[in-house]
Simulated scan of single mutants.
Amino acid sequence: MVDIGDEAPDFTAPLANGDVEAFTLSDHLDEAPIVLAFFPAAFTNTCTTEMCTFRDRLSRFEDVGGTVYGVSVDLPYTLNEFRRQNDLNFGLISDERRDLIDAYGVGESWEPREIRVAKRAVFVVDGDGRITYRWIADNPKQEPDYDAVREAAADASA
């Protein structure tokens, strides 16, 4: 599992932003601080609430130069529909192959079919590609402290 001070695992994955295009973390470090908000599944109650809260507070992250991306194991086409239905104004990264949840150490299995999804987690990556903030939920219904995430983004942009 990555920790504060570690180099963020680089990746290339599909980005759902209305279209579907490749997203490589290292190519976007100029957007830092980057908030990677992992969530278990689109269209579930807590995940919808979390992503809509990031949507509603996006200007607070932009005010400190931050860029928010949601990350889940859903297919990019599902994520685009989730974005559309919830009027999300930031991109969602599809980890359909589960490479990111493995690299960041936030994978878990859901019963009864043992479906592997992301734990709810947030990482802030600075312009040097380092993790400056890490939060992992204790349970699937726990949401992040959005103010703490914003403060971490502000600190990473300083």
Rank of each mutant, 00 (worst) to 15 (best):
D27L: 01
V20M: 09
M51A: 02
I34L: 14
E21R: 14
S26F: 14
A16F: 04
C52K: 14
V68P: 13
D87N: 15
V68F: 11
G66L: 01
D30H: 14
N80G: 07
L88N: 09
L29H: 12
V20Q: 08
T24D: 06
A16H: 04
T78R: 10
N86L: 05
D74E: 08
Y77L: 13
A42Q: 04
P40D: 01
F54K: 10
D74G: 03
R84P: 01
V64Q: 07
R60T: 07
A16T: 08
F39K: 09
D19K: 15
L29P: 12
T44W: 11
V71Y: 11
A16C: 09
P76H: 00
R84G: 07
L15F: 10
L75C: 00
G18C: 03
C52G: 03
F61E: 05
N17M: 03
D74A: 05
G18D: 04
N17V: 10
D27G: 05
L36C: 08
I34T: 12
T78L: 08
G66W: 03
M51I: 00
T78A: 15
P40Y: 04
P33S: 02
T53P: 00
T46F: 14
F43M: 10
T48K: 12
P40S: 03
D27Q: 14
D19Q: 13
F54E: 05
T67C: 09
N17P: 01
T48H: 12
L75V: 03
D19C: 00
A32T: 12
S59L: 01
V71S: 10
T44Q: 06
A37R: 07
L15V: 09
R55V: 08
R84A: 15
T49Y: 02
P40I: 02
N86I: 05
I34Q: 06
D27C: 06
A16R: 10
G70T: 10
Q85S: 13
G91F: 06
D27P: 04
F23T: 02
M51V: 04
